[in-house]
Nucleic acid binder design. Structure first.
Lengths: 229, 229
DNA sequence: AATTTAGCGATTGTTCAACGATCCTTCGAT
DNA sequence: ATCGAAGGATCGTTGAACAATCGCTAAATT
């Protein structure tokens, strides 16, 4: 309907597609902040002052506020009423919490099997990881691992599960930034991913789920070791 | 620290506890809209004009905007850039999507077992449903059913899973408002809930998970029947 | 000297008014 | 009748303003 309207009005289909992609200023501010969070420029606990960011990015304070609301809904940032917003910092309990979510949605997704294309995406993430390992690219290893788990969830073909997973991964990226820098941290996961992927490709879903579950448990333990008390 | 300050200043501890609970104006606006959505005052597809709501609730347009952002992040409302926000309406595919999420987190949660108190909460929801049925309270039956599934997820003891479930339930409450009115719609679920609860109490987690999964599949089918094409 | 009080500065929460941009509709021209 | 151009309405964003609240520091009290 919308497309035909655009067509009859002389607006090219490309423009119509572009139209939906035009991000609002608030969205762009949120994106910028998200980037800075992912890159570790803004560390957990850091304070984000509205006026400062407004000036830095050349936007209104009100717009920054909207961006904050967006980030807060993603748990990347925490609002302390009348005190300001701070970069979120996970506590010991949160680690278990995050992994509980991951166990729920990743295991469920892998049980569903998924389309051949979705399985291929998992395979692609595995190969991406191997390549990064061959080049000693620690950063690349980390993102490849995230792509792997994102692809696992994508097996379910659920928009909602995908966005939930994206948020969880963003949270982890923020919090485990330090750990990501550790070279040997992800290297051990390569074999796990390969095994899980093979089981998945072979249609041995229960086995794949088992492996994945075991991986998640081990990963949680490892993270708790690094950050816990 | 804050408490001692408040105490020494003559502010009652109750007030101090109240302070942390003081919701911002934007939050109250969001709450009000959430209520209207749950009650069916605002039906799916309806348009929400910023200025109108601002006037009606006696707040600034900007504040309404913040409330919209909150509701949009919960998928209760959809933003069409430069056109306004509309009450969300689930399409055929969304029904399956929502149930995919529910299968993932509910089944996972029940597999974990949960603390005795959490199990007791599940039992309480079952009894609440029986009571509502005895009184022919359709509305009560619906909320009891939601309490039941909320309690199931709460077994996992995960804050994040709880909020995810709360959002999913809010979505369903919004969309299935019509269906809720159907008297016989939930009545059939009473026995299911009872069985699931008994299996859970007996520690037969796998069995409980099976029953729950079957229930969800049947429920999805039923909903698709009513709303689908 | 220690603790409470009071005051100060800074930042947030909220409102208001304004403007351009964009959409939908209606009207007019071809 | 179709197409394109004004009109009106609403959104997106800005800027400024003000009260409320917080953290801190200095003064006052015991």
């Amino acid at each position: 309907m919308a497309l035909s309207e655009a067509a009859t009005r002389g607006i090219s289909p490309a423009a119509a597609r572009l139209r939906v992609a035009v991000p609002s200023v608030a969205d762009r501010v949120a994106d910028e902040l998200r980037s800075q969070l992912a890159e570790g420029v803004l560390l957990p606990g850091a304070r984000l002052t509205e006026s400062t960011i407004a000036e830095d990015l050349g936007v209104s304070r009100n717009t920054v506020r909207e961006a904050f609301a967006e980030l807060a809904s993603e748990r990347l940032v925490v609002r302390h009423p009348n005190r300001g917003v701070f970069v979120a910092s996970l506590e010991a309990g949160d680690i278990h919490d995050v992994y509980t979510v991951r166990r729920a949605i990743e295991v469920s997704a892998i049980h569903g099997g998924g389309s051949p294309e979705a399985v291929a995406a998992v395979r692609a993430a595995v190969e991406e990881g191997k390549l990064a390992a061959a080049e000693n690219d620690d950063e690349g290893l980390g993102t490849a691992n995230q792509h792997f788990h994102k692809a696992i969830v994508a097996l379910a073909g659920s928009r909602r599960l995908n966005t939930i997973m994206a948020q969880v991964l963003a949270e982890m990226r923020l919090f485990f930034h330090k750990a990501t820098m550790d070279g040997h941290f992800y290297s051990g996961y390569l074999k796990d991913n390969e095994e899980i992927c093979m089981a998945l490709e072979a249609g041995e879903l229960d086995h794949a789920a088992e492996l994945l579950l075991a991986y998640l448990d081990r990963s949680e333990e490892k993270q708790a070791e690094v950050h816990g008390e």
